[in-house]
Design a protein around this nucleic acid. Structure first.
Length: 668
RNA sequence: GCCAACCUAGCUCAGGGGUAGAGCAGCGGUUUCGUAAACCGCAGGUCGUGGGUUCAAAUCCCAUGGUUGGCUCCA
């Protein structure tokens, strides 16, 4: 045995030497390495130097431990699938945030959900054999030979793409073998709680041009109990799904005559409009001006902006009867719209002949900016637009209100000088804090997305823009994560991610630095020396799309809107029809005072009325019986809390104060 | 668009080759009741749509529309 090999030790050997092998240790985390490379299982031999640098044990219940468990479970699943469906080839099978998947090529077959139960049963059999996971180092040529013989063509293809200095290893459990770098659990016994959750189609290496594969999703935990907790959380999320709440609370609806395009019902429309009015209230205080712009433009506009070239498949086009007279021309239009790489002639032709429905507001805003000469005195110009946008989203990706084909953004563009941009970014951050606080999103994470590989514009522009974004954050002591290479092709951006009430993260706001669009539109302003200068443009949104925000927020609050947003703020509930007259009088009075009040005069018993009103999530319930009629009061209730008797006047005043738009604390 | 599942009354769902069902909501009546579901009755469906198989289709097959979960995680 060569000297080098003799000096290698596995984590198991190191731990055993120290008498520290508990049966819940799945791997170790090396201090000498970082990221996913740092987790090493108990079977992998490493030089003394790596151990000397120190390590922590990874226990099965830890996030890293779960990742190992899930990866091993993916192996067991692949084993089960190949035993049940001979001829199926394996491809990739990683652990994910919430579980794992494995992609298979099953010739002439797909997997149904019935198959999942069979696969799961077979997995339990395999797990019950308590087979150890064994790691083997292997030479590249031997690995290629082994997997060629197994007819695992995808694995072989993958091996041939790996760099020359890659260390090859295979993992075995029982009689099954996979080309894998690990890490894995010591033994199938560690796979205590397994559930297969879904099947889906996918493509080899994620590319639509490659062969179609079958993906099976599952999840695994270190204990049955942990799995149950996870499944409960899924149920919880399902219970507050905005599509369910939207139906139950009569907020919005969908219809096949306008697929993926929401209809806001009266109750939903009230909330939607309150949200917009609130943003308008914020805008007044933050120096924005609202504009209203057209829906349909000559595609010449989108040719200038670049959308026609880069975004035609996401756009709707608009034709009038007059446009449809010439059949030959129509053929050319069709060819031009469908062309994946449009020629200059085609772009010019479309620009002249076709109108498009706007998918974004920015081109219209640039057009308006250049509508007349602009002075430096006007900058920064912050122009807001609640215009309706249409984007053609593919059938498979639409989702409730969260991904729709028509929506409205709380969109605004800030035209300013490069020197002003940092201050504008700071001001936008302040504005965001105010709005997110108003909606009860207290945990906000900021991501700075920098230049991608495919981009336009000189590096000096990128340097300046990235610095402006970063300095704005640093000067206001905001923590952020760097997302290198994730910027838009036209400029870097900040993304604002909020955490909702059940711990999920959503990207809402963004501010994007853009020096490309002003150049394309040849925007100019006259500076204080009378010279023409090009402004920069900041695209920014707080909610993103109103529709999507509605969905996120609805789930965040589980349908219970605060008084200032609620479609109805109070429901008056009568105990007996003897008090109908007083109840109607109280209802009219409250409405005249601007309270959004409803009344339930049905012959239901009080308990039923309360139940119905609670289900509709009224912030306040006001019970009216003989006592209240005599004293001209309401018996007020909020949730399960009895707030006692209150006069009509006091209640109207109370609602008025709670119904005002939230504003940050003013210094007196 | 691709893979899988689903589509039955306004809603939630049962039925799965032989006369279309329940609860809630709705409507009519009785009840007038004090903090999460009073009682009786009535009405409501060419089972998403179009074809096919069959003596017979909500049920089986094909197509089509829609909905849902996926289609980034890299041995």
């Amino acid at each position: 045995m060569p000297l080098m090999e003799a000096q290698l030790k596995t984590a198991r050997e190191v731990l055993e030497a120290r008498g520290k092998v508990d049966n819940d240790v799945v791997a170790v985390k090396l201090k000498s390495r970082r990221g996913s490379d740092a987790i090493v299982d108990l079977m992998t031999p490493l030089p003394e130097s790596e151990w000397a640098a120190g390590f922590d044990v990874v226990r099965k219940a830890s996030p890293e431990g779960l990742e190992v468990i899930r990866h091993s479970t993916a192996h067991v699943m692949a084993d089960a699938v190949q035993k049940l469906f001979p001829g199926t080839k394996v491809t990739f099978g990683p652990a994910t945030d919430n579980g794992f998947y494995y992609d298979f090529d099953r010739p002439g077959g797909t997997f149904s959900e019935d198959d999942l139960a069979k696969i799961e049963a077979k997995m339990r059999e395999i797990i019950a054999t308590k087979s150890p996971f064994k790691r083997e180092k292997i030479e590249r040529a031997d690995a290629i030979d082994l997997f060629s013989k197994l007819n695992e063509t995808y694995k072989v293809e993958w091996m041939s793409t790996l760099p020359p200095d890659t260390e090859f290893s295979v993992y075995r459990h029982g009689d099954w073998v996979d080309f894998c770098k690990g890490p894995h659990v010591p033994n199938t016994e560690f796979l205590a709680a397994v559930k297969l959750t879904a099947v889906s189609g996918t493509y080899w290496r994620g590319d639509e041009r490659n062969p179609q594969l079958q993906r099976i999703y599952g999840t695994a935990f270190h204990s049955e109990k942990a799995l149950e907790v996870y499944l409960k959380q899924l149920e919880e999320a399902k219970a507050r799904d905005h599509r369910k709440l939207g139906k139950e609370l009569e907020l919005f609806a969908f219809d096949g005559t306008a697929v993926a395009s929401p209809f806001f019902l009266p109750r939903g429309a009230k909330v939607y409009n309150r949200m917009i009015d609130y943003i308008r209230d914020v805008y007044v205080r933050h120096g924005y001006e609202e504009i209203i712009t057209p829906q349909i433009y000559s595609t010449e506009l989108f040719r200038t902006s670049g959308h026609l070239e880069a975004y035609a498949e996401g756009m709707y086009f608009a034709f009038a009867a007059d446009d449809l007279q010439d059949e030959k021309k129509l053929g050319e239009i069709r060819a031009a719209i469908l062309a994946p790489n449009k020629t200059e002639e085609q772009l010019a032709f479309l620009g002249k002949e076709v109108r498009g429905v706007k998918p974004m507001n920015c081109p219209g805003h640039c057009q308006l900016f250049s509508h007349r000469k602009r002075s430096y005195r006007e900058l920064p110009w912050r122009c807001a637009d609640f215009g309706r946008l249409h984007r053609y989203e593919r059938g498979g990706v639409v989702h409730g209100l969260a991904r729709v084909r028509t929506f409205c953004q709380d969109d605004a563009h800030i035209f300013c000088t490069p020197e002003q941009s940092e201050q504008e970014i700071i001001a936008f951050n302040t504005l965001l804090d105010e709005v997110y606080t108003a909606f009860g999103f207290t945990e906000v994470r900021i991501k700075l997305a920098t230049r991608p590989e495919r981009r336009v514009g000189a590096d000096s522009l990128w340097d300046f823009a990235e610095k402006a974004l970063e300095d704005a954050l640093r000067k206001t002591n905001r923590a952020f994560d760097l997302a290198e290479g994730e910027g838009a092709f036209y400029g870097p951006k900040l993304e604002f991610h909020v955490k909702d009430a059940i711990g999920r993260s959503w990207q809402l706001g963004t501010i994007q630095y853009d020096f490309n669009m002003p150049a394309r539109f040849d925007l100019k302003f006259i500076d204080n020396e009378g010279k023409e200068q090009t402004p920069v443009m900041l695209h920014r949104a707080i909610f993103g799309s109103l529709e999507r925000f509605f969905a996120v927020y609805l789930e965040h609050i589980n349908g219970s809107f605060p008084v200032w947003l609620a479609p109805e703020q109070v429901c008056l509930l009568t105990v007996t029809d003897k008090v109908d007259d007083y109840a109607k009088e109280a209802h009219a009075l409250l409405k005249s005072r601007g309270v959004r009040a409803n009344i339930d005069l049905s012959s239901d018993k009080l308990g039923a009325k309360i139940r119905n009103a609670r289900n509709l999530r009224y912030p306040y319930l006001a019970v009216i019986g003989q006592k209240e009629a005599e004293t001209r009061t309401l018996a007020l209730r909020r949730g399960n809390e009895d707030l006692g008797a209150i006069s009509l006047d006091d209640f109207a005043a109370k609602i008025a104060s709670e119904a005002a738009f939230p504003r940050p604390q003013q210094k007196q």
